[in-house]
């Protein structure tokens, strides 16, 4: 059984149809990378999966729960789906360790000391154990993003969503975040990533999804997608990306 089933979802903002009949499954342990020009609904698709932006039509299942059904307990659902944001979205008034412990304490109702113990373990996983007492503004972008990953991981999610996790970072800070993501993938975490990092996509993903204009134009394993794209639009997009970001290994 797939972990997530997405069935024919559509969403519009005003007259702008951002998602137009998207269908795909996410198997447990899968790493899917969504690529495509900006403004083609990639971020919106992620926000549909954890119902931050509920789709207008279509259905989404997480295991055997239809999360698009009315009166679904979204708070329960979102605990099982971690999300990492483009601009990190750390709670700026809280230290790194507070950021990670907040959900454990307030949502999972763990007592404070257990929550902080677990928060520290998760900071360790992303190599941030020495920075727990710092406020977001005292951390570099790469460090903030790793804390963001730890915050999501601490909730023991079944699935992690990454919304362009490195696109707000200076080039020299991208590597440390990608390394953490790669490690997660190796450990078997199910992941859906929107990113322009083709190197990461090639080496870690087991499926690349190319989106444009609210549609999935092509979905195939990286080797196939990069060496032999079937769709003309995919080819021209990959060509442009290579020009912009350099040929990826």
């Amino acid at each position: 059984m797939p972990l997530v089933r997405i069935e024919n979802i559509s969403k519009s903002f005003g007259k702008n149809r951002v998602l137009d009949g998207i269908t795909f499954d996410i198997e447990p342990g899968a790493v899917k990378v969504i690529i495509g020009p900006s403004g083609t609904g990639k971020s919106t698709l992620l926000r549909c999966i954890n119902m931050l932006a509920p789709p207008d039509s279509g259905k989404i299942w997480l295991q055997d729960t239809e999360i698009t059904a009315p009166h679904t307990d979204l708070i329960k659902i979102r605990q099982k789906i971690g999300m990492v944001f483009q601009h990190f979205a750390l709670f700026k008034h809280l230290r790194a360790v507070d950021n990670v412990a907040l959900g454990l304490h307030r949502v999972k109702k763990m007592n404070r000391s257990d929550a902080y113990e677990k928060a520290k373990q998760n900071l360790q996983k992303v190599g941030m154990q020495d920075h727990g007492d710092k406020y977001p503004a005292q951390l570099s972008g790469g460090q903030q993003q790793r804390v963001g990953i730890a915050r999501a991981l601490a909730m023991d999610p079944l699935l992690m969503l990454f919304d362009e996790p490195t696109s707000a970072l200076d080039p020299e800070l991208i590597g440390e975040v990608l390394m953490v993501m790669q490690k997660l993938a190796l450990e078997g975490m199910t992941m859906v990533c929107v990113t322009h990092e083709m190197g990461f996509a090639k080496s870690v993903a087991n499926e690349i999804i190319f989106m444009e204009g609210g549609h999935i134009l092509e979905a195939s394993p990286p080797a196939e997608m990069f060496n032999n794209p079937r769709n003309e639009r995919t080819r021209s997009f990959l060509h442009k990306i290579n020009e912009l970001y350099g040929e990826s290994k």
Partner: peptide, 15 residues
């Protein structure tokens, strides 16, 4: 406060 803060709060399951 940016809208991402509210999204982040929702994403870890806060009401």
């Amino acid at each position: 406060i940016s809208s991402e803060q509210m999204e982040a709060a929702y994403s870890i399951g806060l009401s």
